[in-house]
Design a protein around this nucleic acid. Structure first.
Lengths: 335, 335
DNA sequence: TCCAATTGGTATAACGATTTACCAACAGGT
DNA sequence: ACCTGTTGGTAAATCGTTATACCAATTGGA
């Protein structure tokens, strides 16, 4: 079923069919001719060929989204937001885990190089994100980075990261904690630095000092969270509270505390960044700071699709301020 | 950078460039000519246009995957498997949540209709899955259904569902339980029926009767699991164990029990289908039955990409048998 | 009656890559 | 000198859609 088949069936030229399908406002056409065309389209179940259309119009209606780890629930929220907006804009999303980009043959790289996607949303810092980014840059594919400023002409969309850790730290301080450790994410990531800054500022404002050994950087996974938390606890026996930059790592931290026969929050309080609904059902319900992840996904798609804005600049998602969700993992210190 | 630019730069015809890029074995070419072409490709950073290539070759290298809910961790595993295999086959995956297909304008529907995807992997039973399926069928897009037999010519890939619930039920029976309820998933889903069968068979084999009121059907979400479990508990006061068809619903069930001031496993034992790493960190670590989700995702991609097999038939993933993962949510009954 | 305008379309050239068939030049054998 | 192979490529026709420019009738007004 090509456009010419429809044209033949309706007794018009292919151009008319195309213009009917695309709702061309400049097309002048008789009532009944239009009806004939529409009928042919319906009866023959015509749908325009995607490749031909992309070729001609130089736009595919596809957006690539590369994230670190598709199994992290935090990413699920971002994707949901992205999907919703993409749906509204008539675009589809190609998802890729950073880890699958190592093959030279990666289809995603081919697509980025060959105009196969209209835009790229990249959570930088992943395995081969530089490779992707370099390719996108050379081919000038509109790119939006999630929470990671890099030296490239891409738009950056950020969460109120330093506010979030500030709020978390202030809460712990208000409970009476003074020795507050940090279980951070990758040191090279921009948002890690922002969150670290929030924590430091809050501590400083409260007149508390922090020493170098009270922050440790790790991956946002349960296992790594557990290992890093263990290390932190051993290095800082006097620490009474722990601020985790990722909720998944916090789950590992919870485990680490329990491994040592200690209790949360009695022996150690924990507050984590990012609220997920599972947080309420853990061995100790986690007190968290909720960030607008859904909105970030949505906004990223919006920005990457918007031809009017240039691709440099920073957008901070602040539709709502980070919000403290108090559960049971933080309490007043017992020592 | 089109193929002609490269051809011009290398002083050859576009045909040669194309055949070099695609490693055409039948191409006879001089050593140094090939070098010249390769140099032009590298220096000008040429990448073939995806749309043109798809148009000519009638294949996009894209696979659509539609799932119920991208935030369910169970889906994450399936996607991981799918990604890995897709990467190896040089394909990319377009992911869509069932819920975003309602807009008429959905890009995914357009792609399916217009040869924009090489195949479709569909978790049926979702919001508008029939719509997608009908479209794919009419356009004869290779389709693989996940765990849901439907009246269409699509390949079906299944998990050993009835074995899983059998194993779970046998375990509960071996602990001494006789009144075992079922928190099932959507009644219309094939895998629900298979799991239900496994449960019934195990009960029957053990000489236990089950009455109609001891099974309830719900959505795989925490909230629904909580509501459904409450209903089930109230209707069956003598029930001592609960088999949940989805681990996320089981989290809700856990909550439901605790809401009533009861304890797991003392007052009620819970076993859930699907093992996720979070299961170990819940308020009560869940005993689960692990199924090869990753393999299912991988196999689905393989099947949908394989032109040699017809698209009818059923594949059951049994690379490993369902495996009981004993944690702390099931114990001998106290009454 | 004649000159605009308007109506209702159509013809054609791209878009960029692939593939089939073809061909020129030369070497080697007899 | 003549035929046969081989080497090293090339020409041109698609794939299906869309945008630009154009055009033949008809209508309306003076």
């Amino acid at each position: 079923m090509t456009i010419s088949d429809i044209a033949k069936a309706a007794g018009v030229s292919p151009a008319v069919v195309s213009r009917v399908v695309n709702r061309d406002k400049t097309l002048r056409i008789g009532k009944e001719t239009r009806a004939r065309v529409q009928k042919a389209i319906d009866e023959l179940d015509y749908a325009p060929n995607a490749a031909a259309r992309s070729l001609r119009s130089a736009s595919s209606g596809l957006i690539a989204m590369v994230v670190h780890d598709v199994t992290n629930p935090v990413y699920g929220e971002i994707l949901r937001g992205a999907q919703q907006t993409a749906g509204a804009l008539g675009k589809a999303i190609i998802v890729s885990d950073g880890s699958h980009l190592d093959d030279r043959a990666s289809r995603l790289l081919e697509l980025i190089g060959g105009n196969g996607v209209d835009g790229l949303i990249l959570q930088a810092g992943g395995v081969n994100s530089d490779l992707v980014l370099a390719r996108a840059g050379r081919k000038s594919v509109p790119t939006v980075l999630l929470q990671a400023a890099l030296d490239t002409n891409a738009h950056l969309v950020c969460l109120p990261d330093s506010r979030a850790t500030q709020i978390a730290t202030d809460y712990l301080l208000s409970l009476g904690h003074t020795r507050i450790g940090c279980l951070a994410t990758g040191r090279e990531l921009t948002f890690t630095r922002n969150r670290e800054r929030g924590w430091r500022q809050a501590m400083e404002l409260a007149g508390q000092s922090v020493d170098a050994g009270s922050i440790v950087y790790g991956h946002p996974s349960i296992e790594d969270g557990r290992a890093s938390a263990t290390q932190l606890i051993e290095a800082n026996p006097s620490m009474t509270a722990l601020l985790c930059f990722n909720v998944v790592a916090a789950i590992g931290a919870l485990q680490a505390v329990q491994d040592r026969g200690l209790r949360v929050p009695d022996d150690l309080s924990i507050v984590a960044i990012h609220d997920i609904d599972l947080a309420d059902h853990l061995s100790v319900p986690l007190t968290t700071v909720a960030m607008p992840l859904f909105e970030m996904g949505a906004r990223a798609v919006e920005l990457v699709s918007d031809k009017s804005t240039g691709f440099e600049g920073t957008t901070t998602i602040d539709t709502r301020d980070p919000e403290l969700v108090v559960r049971k993992s933080a309490a007043a210190p017992s020592r």
